[in-house]
Simulated assay, not measured.
Amino acid sequence: MTNPNRRTAQTGLVAGLITLTWPGLVLAHGDSHGQPKASSLPPEQKPWGIAGDPRKVRRTITIRMSDDMKLTPSHLDIRQGETLRLRAVNAGAVMHEIVIGTEEELQAHAELMKRFPGMAHDEPYMAHVPPGKTGDIVWNFNRAGEFGFACLIAGHFEAGMRGTLRVKPAQG
């Protein structure tokens, strides 16, 4: 029989390692993905931008997710400073998600998802979408550069479920 105190300690150790390895990923995967994030904290600046104000959205781009592990469209051109609504539509029969990030961050997160498929996380640059549903990300792309978006559900990233974002510098 397993000692319950040992199991609690092991669970705490794993949660602590996840938090140290990937800060900010300690909320549960669930139906809250794709919904507006309520937080008293100011938005966190990321290399690929910052959470956007829905009132400043001027354009919505629909990204279709399918069970053949495709994201359509798989490439987006955006102007620096633009606040977009990325509407993720799950046209498949399994759970999918869209996560925005640098190639390095997406790769690292995909590796964690393989090791911890039920890993807890919920950030404004993510939309976790059940089959037949939609989820929105409202994001201000205030940094120019090449970034990515992908489904990081275990195995989906490796199967090619990813795309590119090119944020072009704002005209001076």
Rank of each mutant, 00 (worst) to 15 (best):
R7T: 13
T8F: 04
T8A: 13
A9L: 13
G12L: 12
V14Q: 06
V14I: 15
V14F: 11
G16D: 11
G16M: 05
I18H: 01
I18E: 05
L20W: 02
L20V: 02
T21E: 05
T21L: 15
G24Y: 10
G24Q: 07
L25K: 00
L25Q: 01
L27C: 01
G30F: 09
S32R: 13
H33E: 05
G34T: 06
K37I: 15
A38G: 05
S39P: 02
L41H: 05
P42N: 04
E44V: 15
W48A: 02
G49T: 10
A51M: 07
D53N: 15
K56D: 12
R58S: 11
R59I: 06
R59T: 13
T60Q: 09
I61F: 02
I61K: 03
T62I: 09
T62K: 11
R64Y: 07
M65Q: 11
M65N: 01
M65I: 02
S66G: 11
S66A: 14
M69R: 13
M69D: 14
L71D: 08
P73E: 10
S74G: 14
H75I: 09
D77S: 08
D77I: 04
I78D: 09
R79T: 15
R79W: 02
Q80M: 12
G81W: 11
E82F: 04
E82C: 01
T83E: 04
L84T: 10
R85M: 13
V89C: 02
V89Q: 13
N90I: 09
N90H: 08
A91I: 00
G92N: 07
V94L: 11
M95I: 14
M95V: 15
M95N: 13
M95S: 06
H96E: 04
H96I: 05
H96F: 05
E97M: 13
I98R: 06
I98F: 10
I98A: 04
G101L: 07
T102G: 12
E105Y: 14
E105T: 13
Q107C: 01
A108F: 06
H109G: 08
A110P: 09
L112K: 00
L112A: 12
M113W: 03
M113I: 00
K114G: 02
K114P: 00
R115A: 15
R115V: 09
F116P: 00
F116Y: 14
F116W: 11
G118Q: 09
